[in-house]
Design a protein around this nucleic acid. Sequence first.
DNA 1: GAACGTTACGCAAACGTTGTCGTGTTGAAA
DNA 2: TTTCAACACGACAACGTTTGCGTAACGTTC
Lengths: 340, 340
Amino acid sequence: MKRKVTLKQIAKELDVSISTVSKSLRNSAEISEDTKLKVQAFAKLYNYRPNNIALSLKNKKTKTIGIIIPEIVHHFFATVISGIEQVANENGYNVIVCLSNESFDKEVINMEVLANGSTDGFIMSLSKETQQKKDFHHIEEVINQGMPVVMFDRITNDVLCDKVIIDDQRAAYEAVDFLINNGFKNIALVTTVDYVSVGKLRTDGYTNAMQDHDMPVSDNMIVKIEDIDNCATKIEKLLLENKPDAIFAVNELFAVTSIKLATKMGIKVPEELSVIGFTDGIISQFSSPSITTVSQNGIKMGGRAAQMLIDRLELEEENEQYTTELIETHLVERESTSTL
Amino acid sequence: MKRKVTLKQIAKELDVSISTVSKSLRNSAEISEDTKLKVQAFAKLYNYRPNNIALSLKNKKTKTIGIIIPEIVHHFFATVISGIEQVANENGYNVIVCLSNESFDKEVINMEVLANGSTDGFIMSLSKETQQKKDFHHIEEVINQGMPVVMFDRITNDVLCDKVIIDDQRAAYEAVDFLINNGFKNIALVTTVDYVSVGKLRTDGYTNAMQDHDMPVSDNMIVKIEDIDNCATKIEKLLLENKPDAIFAVNELFAVTSIKLATKMGIKVPEELSVIGFTDGIISQFSSPSITTVSQNGIKMGGRAAQMLIDRLELEEENEQYTTELIETHLVERESTSTL
DNA sequence: GAACGTTACGCAAACGTTGTCGTGTTGAAA
DNA sequence: TTTCAACACGACAACGTTTGCGTAACGTTC
């Protein structure tokens, strides 16, 4: 086993000082060509690579981005990570991923651990519990210590920092608008509980679209789901009692679940019921019928978030100007909607 | 903005030495109660936390695990990461994730970068290109430098290290066996090209099961797919010309694609064609019909891999004994298979 | 009052870098 | 021969920690 070689070892081996070795490898003009060549050859032979940790300590920069998200077994979050990773990599950064599992405490702990020197900044999406508690002291604190934070998707306006989101309300509005323009009269909404910020915004988009077209917004037509595992009865009740001709669901899972339940009840999709989902993930693409959905480009979102963070990291002067960037969405028409 | 406080600053503030502060905070018996209390109170007030980077440099341990996988927008890999993260976290480790995007070069670069002090060890799954080239020098090198590596799923026997896999061949055998026992006579295989190790093993499992039941293994009944985007014609040809009554697909995507194509051609699943997939991901669960599949527990796989790595990291003496652990699989019966 | 033990702290090295500054040796100009 | 720049290199500090060891001050013992 040959352990990694250090400057000190090279110096000892060649009988020069550590500084000479360091300077030679960085091609300093201070060192003679002879010595430089000798050192460089030796370093190459022994495959010398500077120790990242030592560099981090010296430079006070880790070239590492901390990502804190609720979960990773989730198509959208996975695409965002993918986008972050790509941009980070292009800029010489690595990413360290922490999962909050929707828990406030774990989110706090993860941030605190990473903030102690492990990363230069954060990209994060809030856990449900954090959104519910509205407690953002851990994020404020990190920002206060001079570490930039970029929030995406599940954000809060209570924290001043860069943000990347889609225009959830508008995207939902357009989806519902699409249904209305196609002649649907009885449009139901399957959404999350209100404290999930994106759920709330999408709900608002639905409401606004309905109202703008002078269509009634009835509580009977709105199902708010807290726990996906126990949502069946609620949706079945909706289908049975209110007979919607279209459903707008605020995520894939709600969409596909609605379709499955409808099919089981003998309601044909899309002939008797059209369904639009949100998030263009695996489910929307591969379920039968495939699902018409609002596509949010996670790769792009992650990429932008990473770029914003890196830009801020590599800026010398502090910039108190924070921006919120909108990633455009578009409706992907598939098989789950019919045009009447 | 209040930057993070260091031992030095506390020492200066309280007019004691750095060592006194350090020892006080670690509750050393060398320091008087008075001083300890004073220092601890001050540290708490200023929310002192040791700098991870400095600790890493000193201890030559980063408490970080490097994960290198082909992609992350992939249900199975996401579950594995989730499993790794959980166990890592319980043991005070963080994970840093790198994606090879199935590229050999990127895999090599990622390993080299992380090996320069950023992580204590690796958990990885080989990129397709690496499996094709059979070039594992980057992994050998890392191991040679004393960093443990645990490989999972896409492994190679050419490298000596701990491994976590499912018994791909056996799992495939059992799936095909299940079909045979249910009376299917004309069982096709949709698989990958041979250099993908798991694809090959699953193919072998199919072949063995067929042979053990004295059923013919015909090349016509085996479709090897290199590129998912251009596989339609091959599968259509299979369905049209060879009229299988069942298909065993070596992954979800192949399974769902086969079902979709069959349905499009008017072949009813499962009435006229039964399909079994591999990997119990989102697609299998939510497509219609839902897909009978071989479930490989990614969470468990990741968890075991992490535990193996950590065990080795926290062992003092070197242990040249490497183990390959098998994670059990089981068949999840759903709607895509009928019992004749 | 000398010898010794205990207490409570500080010094310094180490981890692996980088970069500033100081210094010894050369060769050339005066 | 003296002076001085240019050259080539080394010493050292710094980044933030931990820890072994040295030591000043004090109190006890005979």
